[in-house]
Design a binder for these strands. Structure first.
Lengths: 116, 116
DNA sequence: CTGGATCCAACGTGATACTG
DNA sequence: CAGTATCACGTTGGATCCAG
């Protein structure tokens, strides 16, 4: 249990923001975020409309909010091309690509859940 | 990117329940759940009141709801002792202990976020 | 002590329409 | 095409009170 002990960096009642696990959960814990990240991991670069169509059920508002959050956190990069019609491309940053390890662990655990 | 490809088991619009990653996120993505699991991982066995006091801010209702969810999913086991006053102890199941890998990955990523 | 019941406020999300 | 503005609703969590 030693590796686990090291994960404790802070009691939550001081400041949630300082706990790295909480920070990470804030990134991937929100609805739709996982699907956006999955899409970008699989496809590489995607445009706003691509993402909108790929994830049936998400509204343009929610998508734009999530993308902005991810951009602000340095997980997704946004590139605007000065064309007509406008073109904007989203792709994962190097930091964003590091999320793969988390998803693999989540999958491992999720499969255990299904065995029940 | 091959290991990642394997994580894709399903498009979300069929049924979220069948994607192991979504299932796993449902377990640990809810507010307070991480703190409950952390407490149990660190302390082993805890009583209702212990958890209530350890996590400043959580309401008894939310705690009982979370604990029941975790119990239903087979992550936490609940033991009732026929005493007066009543005593109920919570502890992680073997499945619950497998969450450690996820938390370690989350911490790894969370630390990268802080470097910004 | 454990935790269920109830009421309520806040937030996230969806639908839709509209602009640059 | 790529979003933003507005509105409304459902779900979640918090506060309290109370019961076994």
């Amino acid at each position: 249990m030693n590796a686990w002990e090291e994960t404790i960096t802070l009691d939550h009642d001081d400041s949630d923001e300082l706990c790295p696990i909480v920070s990470a959960l804030e990134v991937i814990g929100t609805k739709w975020t996982f699907f956006i990240l999955r899409e970008l991991l699989l496809e590489g670069t995607r445009r706003f409309g691509d993402l909108l169509r790929a994830m049936d059920g998400i509204s343009p508002k929610t998508l734009s909010v999530r993308l902005r959050e991810l951009e602000d956190r340095g997980i997704v990069s946004r590139t605007v091309y000065a064309e007509v019609p406008p073109r904007v491309e989203y792709t994962l940053t190097e930091l964003g690509k590091r999320l793969e390890g988390i998803f693999l662990e989540l999958k491992r655990f999720g499969l255990l859940l299904e065995e029940k």
